[in-house]
Design a protein around this nucleic acid. Structure first.
Lengths: 196, 196
DNA sequence: CAGAAACCGTAATTAATATTACGGCTTGCC
DNA sequence: GGCAAGCCGTAATATTAATTACGGTTTCTG
């Protein structure tokens, strides 16, 4: 109700939740443990979030905001410029601890609610943004094709199956260099595919 | 020990395990439930597989065999022919209930053992197979580039982020048409990209 | 066929954990 | 100041599931 302070508290709690998820995984993270880590009470967590899944949903929402903000930072005039800045950031987030933890939680949710929430807050927020860039590139005569298709292709080339492999623990967290290189490759391939 | 009969029994048990995983997910599937479903005893499961993770590892191994066998079926002389037959099959398996169930189990395994096992039994069995096909295509003058790179690119174009989206429940199981179409697209893009 | 080993059904054991409850302290509001 | 609501620490409840145990039966094995 009193947004100022409580909002801050929520941030702390969700921070703690991320920390626990990262350390112990979804199944290994109890609500009580999160409460203890955040020095909050069990009661508060249940009052605020409803249940464990509700808490996860809140994490997803917060992460969506973070992603949106980070990508907004990369706005630019030249489409390729913007893509080359956006690519590594996006890849880093998609493979970063938060997205991975949330995807693992969603994988454990048989209802599929979390997964859909992630999808809506992730892909469906990012895609329009990239689609805009593609449209500008097409207008500028730098690419040809349908903006939506190009967006899908770019995301495929950029992310590919890296995220699933990261989520199941088959690969280690990548460093910044890797993300940069991969993003460059993806962009180069995109240009090649969709040359006017 | 007595391979004939016990092997059959194991198959039944693992069949039941897959069924339960599909219905209830990893966390929702208890070893007892599997035992009951397979009309086996708890004791037997623990004797044979050690623990729950061991059982999952056995499922992974069995699935590896299935994948290998299915892909071996698609052997052919013309590389593109083979790819166009192999693509839909591979995609169907990767997005099928078994692979999805196992990936979900691996996502819940903080040790990463299952994930690595899946990776070794999946990607690392499939990749050399495709790499061979690529080599033949290159020798025949139908493609150019490095076989390993082309394999990675093909897998990226074919699978992309479909598997993670499927694992978190963001998309429904695909039908055969979808797999066929997507495989055709991936192949076309590969040809386009790696034209000699 | 006898003895042993393996297996089934069923239950005990043990640990967590999601969720609820409660007495006491803080804090904003009148 | 005083009170009402919200929050903390702590504990109770209740359920679930991993793992172990055991008597009775089936199945090998010699």
């Amino acid at each position: 109700m009193k947004s100022e302070k409580q909002e801050e508290r929520r941030a702390e709690i969700e921070e703690a939740a991320y920390r626990m998820l990262g350390e112990k995984g979804y199944a290994g993270t109890s609500v009580q443990a999160i409460a203890k880590a955040a020095k909050a009470s069990n009661e508060t967590l249940y009052n605020w979030y409803g249940d464990k899944k509700g808490l996860m949903a809140a994490l997803v929402a917060r992460n969506t905001e973070t992603v949106r903000a980070a990508l907004a930072e990369t706005a630019g005039t030249d489409p390729f410029d913007q893509l080359s800045r956006l690519g590594p950031v996006l890849l880093g987030m998609v493979l970063g601890p938060r997205a991975v933890a949330l995807n693992r939680a969603a994988a454990a949710d048989t209802s599929g609610d979390l997964g859909r929430a992630i999808s809506e807050g992730g892909r469906e927020v990012v895609a329009p943004l990239i689609s805009d860039v593609m449209s500008r590139a097409i207008e500028g005569g730098d690419l040809s094709g349908d903006p939506g298709d190009l967006t899908q292709l770019y995301l495929t080339l950029l992310i590919g199956d890296l995220q699933i492999r990261r989520v199941i623990g088959a690969i280690e967290p990548p460093d910044a260099d890797f993300c940069t290189t991969r993003a460059e490759t993806a962009l180069a391939q995109l240009k090649d595919f969709a040359a006017p």
